[in-house]
Amino acid sequence: MNTKKSEISNNLSELMDIDKDIHEPARLMILSYLFVLESADFIFLRGQTGLTWGNLSSHIAKLEEKQFVEVKKEFIRKKPRTMVSLTEKGKEAFLNYREKMKEILG
């Protein structure tokens, strides 16, 4: 009984180590998409996640600040396109987050 209690308490204390920048649902959703795709533009990510422009911009800015994603502006037939992709650091952080959550949730 005591062992089980201490196990639960250990698991819960691991919650404190969770990367809060990834744990936020909108950012987690963006990262999940970018993990399975090579890159996507803002329009595609907006369509997939259902976030508003403002929300998407601010979350991607936050992820870019943490160097989890790379934002590249390119011109295709004179039209600007902003492509977002996951960095190696972002991939690693996402995989760590997944592992940690699996451990906590059993």
């Binding site: 399975v36 795709l37 090579e38 890159s39 996507a40 533009d41 803002f42 329009i43 595609f44 990510l45 907006r46 369509g47 295709i76 396109r81 492509m83």
Partner: peptide, 10 residues
């Protein structure tokens, strides 16, 4: 196509 956006798959 412009409404769907651009995506590059793995």
């Amino acid at each position: 196509k412009p409404r769907l956006g651009t995506v590059k798959f793995g």
